[in-house]
């Protein structure tokens, strides 16, 4: 098994943290993992993306060219990475901000109204966790226990009070996929 993920959005949408949560959780489950960010001027409000690999075997290139999964949180990211997904792969689209549909028919596409769900919960900033919840439900890549452990690693113990709202976001995201 080798899961190669691209998570992309604009700066501030939390795609880096989303990727780190997955990476940590994979490590907690003793899988081989790597996380590589895009970095540079595009981090200042432009598009940001990170590559995550979760694998049973040694990881070769940490750069994801042929993704098994892409999570896109804004339109430019869909345009950029829609065709990076291998046939049979998965594409998660933040349908709150992306009104167009994917043209791909050889992959599984999930439309998740991540910002709408996040707003319903009461915090627009957890849209990334809604996307992650949807992804976890569809792939079962890592367990929720591991994600919880990862939460503390990524956000620090002093953000413990934010765990409930993040868990709720994960659950609502999962629900969106189950529908």
């Amino acid at each position: 098994m080798e899961e190669r993920i691209i998570a992309a959005g604009f700066g501030g949408q939390g795609v880096m943290a989303l990727g780190q949560m997955l990476t940590y959780a994979g490590m907690v489950e003793d899988k081989r993992v790597s996380w590589v960010p895009s970095y540079g001027p595009e981090m200042r409000g432009g598009t940001a993306n990170c590559n995550v690999i979760i694998s049973d075997d040694l990881i070769g290139s940490p750069v994801v060219i042929e993704a098994t999964t892409a999570l896109v949180l804004n339109k430019p990211s869909l345009d950029k990475f829609e065709h990076s997904v291998v046939p049979g792969g998965k594409l998660f689209i933040n349908s709150s901000l992306i009104s167009t549909k994917s043209t791909r028919e050889d992959i599984d596409v999930y439309y998740v109204p991540a910002n709408d769900i996040a707003n319903e919960i009461g915090n627009n900033r957890v849209a990334n966790m809604v996307m992650l919840g949807a992804y976890l439900e569809a792939t079962k890549m890592v367990g929720m226990d591991s994600i919880e452990k990862a939460f503390y690693k990524v956000f620090g113990e002093n953000k413990a009070h934010l765990l409930p709202i993040n868990k709720e976001a994960l659950e609502k995201g999962a629900e969106a996929v189950r529908k």
Binding site: T23, M27, V33, S34, W35, V36, Y39, P62
Partner: peptide, 10 residues
Amino acid sequence: DGFIGQMMEP
């Protein structure tokens, strides 16, 4: 290289 610096691994 930039990757080695920016990459996260266990």
